[in-house]
């Protein structure tokens, strides 16, 4: 645990060294949120907690995905391609720590960003509900690690940095565009839940409808995502897979 803490501290100091990076994940969703809801905010509308959480779903999901992709997966991938991962691997002695430490760090950062985002939305729509903040806390806690798990698959790909940049951008765009996709065909529905934005959407819908079956599917798929993430962590390639292979 000490080594994970030390790695997290190292990554946090790296992040604080470039403070702008702290807001990248949240600044664009905030701008988009402001633009899309400008009229309603100006009209002094009041949204109830349920309406607010539905409104926030794609934004929260985007913040989590953006942090996971750009600050965890791509950062670890970049360190591997630069050759630095192997140096740290021999110092900390466990390859899983190299992925786990940034994942834990960005869980807290995603949480702060999402709670801050929610607070702004609550102020804008005149609904200062502590329940909503607790719901957001629960949502981020439930979806963050499955999101990391499924996206960790990207780290295993033997592709060059430009391909990785394009691929991660495509994954983010596709995930956000399909967040409201739904189907009544159960196998396909379960399959689509591996998309983190759909998983978030389903989680919120299960929370609002208090559906036990819905919770069951979300937790089941979430656990499979986490298992995938665990396997990616324990098999994390230490040396560049795109150079000279």
């Amino acid at each position: 645990m000490k080594k994970i803490r030390a790695l997290m501290k190292f990554d946090l100091e790296m992040l604080l060294d470039n403070r702008l990076a702290f807001v990248y994940a949240v600044i664009f969703p905030l701008l988009f949120f402001a633009m899309s809801n400008w009229k309603n905010v100006m009209a002094q509308q009041t949204y109830d907690t349920e309406k607010l959480i539905i409104l926030l779903t794609p934004y929260l999901s985007y913040v989590v995905m953006s942090n996971t992709l750009n600050n965890v997966v791509l950062m670890v991938y970049g360190r591997r391609e630069d050759g630095f991962l192997k140096m740290y691997y021999f110092i900390v002695e466990r390859r899983s720590y190299l992925l786990l430490a940034p994942e834990i760090l960005y869980y807290f950062i995603s949480l702060i960003e999402c709670l801050g985002f929610t607070l702004l939305a609550m102020i804008a729509f005149h609904n200062l509900s502590p329940i909503l903040l607790l719901q957001v806390l629960l949502i981020i806690t439930v979806i963050y690690f499955p999101t990391c798990g499924i996206l960790s698959l990207l780290v295993l790909l033997p592709i060059k940095p430009p391909s990785m940049t394009a691929l991660s951008g495509g994954v983010l765009l596709l995930a956000v565009l399909t967040y409201s996709y739904t189907t009544s065909f159960l196998p396909l529905r379960v399959l689509t839940m591996f998309n983190p934005t759909i998983l978030t959407s389903d989680l919120i819908s299960s929370m609002l409808t208090q559906s036990v079956a819905g919770w069951g599917w979300v937790l089941g798929v979430g656990l499979v995502d986490c298992a995938i993430g665990y396997l990616c962590m324990t098999h994390l390639p230490i040396i560049s897979k795109s150079q000279r292979v």
């Binding site: 100091e13 360190r79 630069d82 630095f84 140096m87 691997y89 021999f90």
Partner: peptide
């Protein structure tokens, strides 16, 4: 791996 140290040419380090 616990018996080895491997140093690379460049080291990513906090500039501050």
């Amino acid at each position: 791996s616990s018996e080895i140290i491997y140093q690379m040419q460049g080291v990513p380090m906090l500039m501050t």
